[in-house]
Amino acid sequence: MNTQSSAGPALVVDRLTKRFGERTAFSEVSFAVDYGEVFGFLGPNGAGKTTTVRTLGTLIAPSSGTASVAGLPLNAANGVAIRGRIAVMPESPGLYLRLSVAENLTYFAGLYDLADRRERIARALKAVGLEHRADDLCRSLSKGLKQRVGLARALLSDPQVLFLDEPTSGLDPVAAREVHELIDGLRRRGVTIFLTTHRLAEAERLCDRVGIMNTTLRTIGRPDELRDRLFAKSIEVRTREPLADPDRVLAGLPGCEGWRRNEDGAYVLSVTDPDAAAPAAARAVLAAGADLLALTPTRHSLEDVYLQMIDTDVEAEQR
């Protein structure tokens, strides 16, 4: 692993903004990512995710705001030094198709001015399980394998921060799972990963924290934290027949703040403490003479959080 140059977070972004003329790509974005963290950057198309990655990768100059990347202030003078400490894998792996896997990696090892190129290339190929495909021309590889070569290329320099922009975009489920396993492996090795993705299940599975972006950073936190922040905890009570007087049965249960009936006919109880409310709800339903079919805590996914945030933006735009 590339030696961390300074203490403190791997990425610090403070009110960063990028405008292209009249169009704002992203605005007033602030967050920090610690070393060793896997940070998910989510958002719809055109939300400014790729532009943010390009800005932090010194490919694009910000319009305003400040940032530090791998311990260095983000500015033109530090461009070469920052790019030496990070690696970016763009959405399309961008391989030279007429060159072999090893030739592609040798080229990039040269661009990073790496001393022990052979060892590093062998290590990177092993990390992505391509040690036996080194001499294959890149044009002969499947999309999933090309993505793996792109990942091997990003690992060559042992970056302090690894930016992965939609690493599973366009991959079939098996190839996507392979990439997930590779990212999981990197996470276990302590690599700081900034993961841009559309796949919410992927983010939920791989990321310590996520930020949801829609030109501005809408929210940031651990997936479970975001769920708790946005959605009240609830339990779902399913009975064979509707309760005769549900208000008498369900209102006033310990830890229960209210109830509603969903479209499936189940009773959804908003609770502060599911562990206390669930047994009380079961007893109350049975005491009312109803047949209890199921009693389950409702789980909200990161997708629910994401849709809630983005739907709010869509509604705000329509008003």
Binding site: V80, R83, V88, G94, L95, L97, F108, L111, Y112, G150
Partner: peptide, 14 residues
Amino acid sequence: EQGTLEPVLTTPLT
């Protein structure tokens, strides 16, 4: 056109 420019520009190459 090949999509190889961006990966190259993300390296320390000036």
